[in-house]
Design a protein around this nucleic acid. Structure first.
Lengths: 338, 338
DNA sequence: CTGAAAGCGCTAACAC
DNA sequence: GTGTTAGCGCTTTCAG
């Protein structure tokens, strides 16, 4: 058992042709092979159950067909939807996706970066939000630089903070538009569950919201930080409620946090949207049917994944490309006119 | 620019040592290298920005450190949670995960299987449900067989239909227990949104529920098939409502379908759980806070991912291992006692 | 159109 | 300890 897998030269022997001919017949090439030999090779391959060794091909050709994807947490719908988009696009191109989920730990990002470099992947797509940790970002830049030098492509889906092609998400604009909209709906005393202070995406959403709010001429909102995710929103909401302030709506930095916040409200007997309007960000598909339907800013998550792959394929540019995608405010029941 | 990445022999030259020594110093080996030479090599590598080529290493060593994961749809929380568990475990072992999302198309499964074979991955984890398509399953078996012959490991997360190590999900038992529970709660006239008829998981859940129901002594339920996912549940529910039968509860084959069903009810003015109780399956995390809270069967999704990797590492067995995981009925507001 | 041979980058005997 | 030298499986000149 486990008889050594047959190789191309096995096939060549079996077919009674040279290695070169077998190679040309099986794995495309500009050179043409005579019909008789070609079929002899094909049959031999068939007979031996030959499967080309992609590693060897990659070495010989000097190029792989895998692109790495680094996300904060693949279980998070935000990232899994992006991953789905990327995977679909990759599949169409015959590329394979190497999945790297950092589970929020920054060091992992560095480890994955070097692992992907070692794999000599064709490209690396960084889907995690950039952080404010100077030191970490420098390390990331250094590794990416090295990877690029080696001929690899890098695409980020986040803020345009890295000198690489980037699918730039307009977190700021989306949040700003949401603030304006909430104000127009009659809300006057918002609070923010602003997410992790060190994540740029969270910070941008917060700043955008504040900017929009101030422009609309409202009072200065309270901001409570907290982890992204349901529990982060839940905890932040409890903390907010403990402050016993008088808010008429809450903007959570993402939908998951908004769900957590609503859960907290329910536990504390705060009616949503009766006592308090709640809005999120992302428009996670899985949450589209919840009650009350969540007001949010819809991001074209899957498309973002596809766009990232497009940038990968676009090849290196003289200067970093920026692919802007923006969010669309979706007002639903969780923030009725007031 | 894009100067050819430096190789091990570059490092050896730079350090003035032999290729072998450089290799031993940089990438572990039982052999010991003198302290002076070792540091000279390390410095040289540092200076040259050397990054080992994993492909070359894999070829020379005859073993890779990537395991492939094939799922139906990575955007589905069911699979993304399993993926998260697998990814976490893989990371701990220094393994990389190749993500393959078939988007429901069976042919893709075959394509990915051969792609993974070509990559000479250490293992393939098949997380998609097995189908009833004889032909397809045969093809899958054939490819897996070939892969195993080549020394690769295969682990399935599904039904024990393939002759490979399997994390067996007790869909039947879970659904059966749910049926019993619903009966005990006072429900008497259930309908099933049974999912895709060709998916074994769906079929098992349906059969389990029916078995449990019959044992409890109820009337024969109506079964409406439909795609997994929100829309599938929505459509199936509309069809059910159109039949104008008199049901007091609905069991959807998974949580996503249950959500779709609830949405359909809402549109049609059917109160849940007032007029109709609704239960799902999986206990998707993202949906834990919805209202009404969903009665469901909780599956240890993340753990299943981890278990799969454990089986991978366990190495080949003389006969297929079976790792049983079972669901736990979680009764919530969507099916109050009646 | 086909074949011989030189790599691709690295590991692992096998010598010294 | 350290160096030499075969490969690993495949692609791709370069000759014929």
């Amino acid at each position: 058992m486990a008889a050594r897998a047959s190789t191309l030269s096995d096939v060549a022997n079996e077919a009674g042709v040279s290695l070169a001919t077998a190679s040309r017949a099986l794995n495309g090439s500009d050179r043409v092979v005579g019909e008789d030999l070609r079929s002899r090779v094909l049959e031999a391959a068939q007979r031996l159950g030959y499967t080309p060794n992609a590693q060897a091909q990659a070495m010989a050709r000097g190029a792989t067909d895998v692109v790495g994807l680094i996300v904060n947490d693949i279980a998070d719908p935000y990232f899994s939807t992006i991953a789905a988009g990327l995977a679909a696009a990759a599949e169409e191109q015959g590329l394979l996706v190497m999945l790297c989920s950092t589970a929020g730990r920054a060091e992992r990002e560095l480890e994955f970066l070097t692992a992907l470099h070692r794999q000599r992947g064709r490209a690396i797509v960084l889907a995690g939000s950039r952080t404010t940790a100077r030191r970490h970002q420098q390390e990331v830049s250094r590794l990416l630089e090295a990877f690029t030098q080696g001929g690899g492509r890098v695409v980020a889906i986040s803020q345009p903070k890295l000198p690489v092609d980037t699918v730039v998400v307009d977190n700021r604009g989306g949040a700003e538009a949401l603030a304006t909209r909430l104000h127009a709906l009659g809300y006057r005393r918002p609070a923010l569950l602003s997410g992790p202070p060190d994540l740029l995406a969270a910070r941008d959403r917060q700043e955008g919201f504040l900017a929009g709010w101030r422009a609309a001429g409202g009072t200065e909102p309270t901001c409570i930080p907290g982890a992204f995710g349901r529990d982060g929103g839940y905890d932040a909401m409890l903390r907010l409620l403990d402050r016993d302030e008088d808010h008429d709506c809450v903007f959570a930095a993402n939908d998951l946090m908004a769900m957590g916040a609503i859960a907290a409200c329910r536990e504390r007997g705060v009616a949503v949207p009766g006592d308090l309007g709640v809005a999120g960000f992302d428009d996670i598909t899985t949450l589209r049917d919840v009650v009350p339907a969540l007001t949010t800013v819809r991001l074209p998550l899957e498309e973002m994944g596809r766009n990232a792959l497009e940038l990968v394929l676009a090849g290196p540019a003289t200067r970093p490309r920026r692919q802007q995608v923006s969010g669309e405010v979706v007002v639903r029941e969780s923030t009725p006119p007031r």
